[in-house]
């Protein structure tokens, strides 16, 4: 009696989570997988086939964008890590008490605004009639207006900015747990700054580094607003193509195939990243 009541309680507790996974994650993906293998023969008949996938490999614009998105996302992730690590080190190890909380809050504040507003913030700074351009002109450093938007650098700036917090949180948490004595022991046994960083600090922070990288990579790869708004027409981001297929062309079959490929790409890169760094997903996430 009691055991069955407990079981019921457990199921009730789990129900929202299971429903969420089932309805919002599992079902759409399975359906997308199904649609991606359907080929439209005429206006009312469908057949099974690989045409959409064939299109992807035959049309160079598709897979070039695909590779470009992957490479730029990896680069953005690496850059975010490089920028976030010293900040996380400062917050976790050097700042104390009140300052620590305030600094953390300062990193969090931009996320009160939506991604759209944050991106427009960057656009106000970088566009032709923007703050940077007018300042440079006022100082007499340039003759005419300078367009800093609509190039890859602008896209990466926006993406790094969006990913920073998600890299900082796991890094600060792991670095916070690093025993000061371990660092001192690293020096005491003859290591210099670089050796201590490489042999003691980074191996210790590895779970935080990997989990931060996974989150930032996934966010970047799947981001839509920032590359479109800051990269302009030529940004060529893969999510943009999926959007085009679904909404502009109303070609759900092709859009679904591209969506499946994006999912495969991100899973593959995360798996490879875990293998290379010798971490397991369970260790990193839990």
């Amino acid at each position: 009696m009691r055991a069955s009541a407990n079981r019921l309680a457990l199921w009730l507790l789990m129900a929202p989570f299971l429903l969420w996974i089932l309805l919002l994650v599992l079902l759409p993906h399975l359906d997308m997988l199904r649609v991606s293998f359907q080929v439209r023969e005429s206006w009312d008949s469908l057949a099974w086939g690989l045409t959409q996938y064939q299109n992807f490999f035959e049309e160079s614009y598709y897979w070039r964008t695909f590779v470009r998105t992957g490479v730029m996302s990896l680069f953005t992730t690496a850059l975010t890590l490089l920028i976030a690590f010293p900040i996380a080190w400062y917050i976790a190890r050097l700042a104390s008490g009140r300052a620590k909380g305030l600094l953390f809050l300062a990193c969090l504040v931009p996320f009160w605004a939506s991604e759209l507003v944050r991106t427009y913030g960057w656009m106000i700074l970088l566009r032709e009639s923007g703050l940077f351009s007018t300042t440079l002109q006022a100082l007499g450093l340039v003759d005419g207006p300078v367009e800093m938007l609509y190039n890859d650098v602008a896209v990466i700036i926006g993406l790094v900015y969006n990913g920073l917090l998600f890299m900082l949180v796991p890094l600060v948490t792991t670095l916070d747990g690093l025993d000061e004595n371990l660092v001192e022991a690293g020096y005491d046994l003859g290591g210099g700054h670089w050796t201590v960083l490489r042999e003691v600090v980074i191996p210790w922070a590895m779970p935080g580094i990997v989990s931060g990288c996974i989150v930032v990579f996934m966010l970047t790869l799947g981001s839509y607003l920032t590359p479109i708004l800051m990269g302009g027409k030529d940004s060529a981001w893969f999510t943009e193509q999926i959007f085009t297929q679904f909404i502009t062309r109303f070609n759900w079959e092709q859009g679904a195939a591209l969506g499946v490929l994006l999912l495969l790409l991100s899973s593959l890169i995360v798996w490879a990243g875990l293998r290379v760094t010798g971490q397991s997903l369970r260790k990193v996430m839990g």
Binding site: D179, N181, L182, A185, V200, P203, W204
Partner: peptide, 9 residues
């Protein structure tokens, strides 16, 4: 060290 500080990794 007091808590030895062996490198856990």
């Amino acid at each position: 060290f007091q808590h030895l500080a062996l490198f856990p990794t």
